[in-house]
Computed example of a mutant assay.
Amino acid sequence: MRLCFLVEEHYRHDGMPNEVVRQLKAWGHRVEVLRPGGSLLRMSEAVDAGAHDAWVLKTVSGGPGLTLLEAAAAAGATTVNDARAIRGVRDKALAAAIGRGRGLPLPPTYAAARPELLAQIPASEYPLVVKPADGSSGRAVHLVSSPERLAAMLPELAGEGMLVAQPYVPNSGTDLKVYAVGGELFATERRSPLHPDTSVPERLVPLSAEIAEIGARVGEVYGLDLYGVDVLLGPDGPVVVDVNDFPSFRQVPDAAARVARAVLDLARGSGSRPCPEVGSALPRRSGQEMSIPLQATAVTAATAASAAASVVAAAAPAAPTGEPV
Rank of each mutant, 00 (worst) to 15 (best):
M1K: 02
L3H: 06
F5I: 00
V7A: 11
D14R: 13
D14L: 07
G15M: 12
A26F: 02
R30D: 14
L34C: 12
S44P: 06
A46M: 09
G50R: 15
G50N: 10
H52D: 02
L57Q: 14
L57F: 01
T59E: 12
V60P: 01
T67F: 05
L69S: 04
E70T: 12
T79Y: 06
T79D: 04
R84K: 08
R90E: 15
I98L: 12
G101F: 12
E116A: 11
L117P: 02
L128C: 04
D134P: 02
G135I: 00
S137Q: 11
R139S: 12
R149H: 13
L150T: 15
L150S: 14
A151M: 09
M153I: 14
M153K: 07
E156V: 12
A158T: 09
E160N: 10
P170Q: 07
L176K: 03
Y179V: 07
V181I: 15
L185E: 00
R191Q: 13
L194D: 00
V205R: 14
L207D: 01
I211K: 02
A216I: 13
A216C: 04
G219H: 06
Y222H: 04
G228N: 11
G234D: 05
F246I: 15
S248Q: 10
F249S: 03
V252H: 05
P253D: 11
A260K: 06
L264C: 01
L266S: 02
P274E: 10
P276M: 04
R284H: 11
R285L: 10
M290H: 03
L294S: 11
Q295V: 13
T300R: 11
T303Y: 02
A307G: 08
A309D: 13
S310A: 15
P317F: 07
T321E: 11
V325A: 14
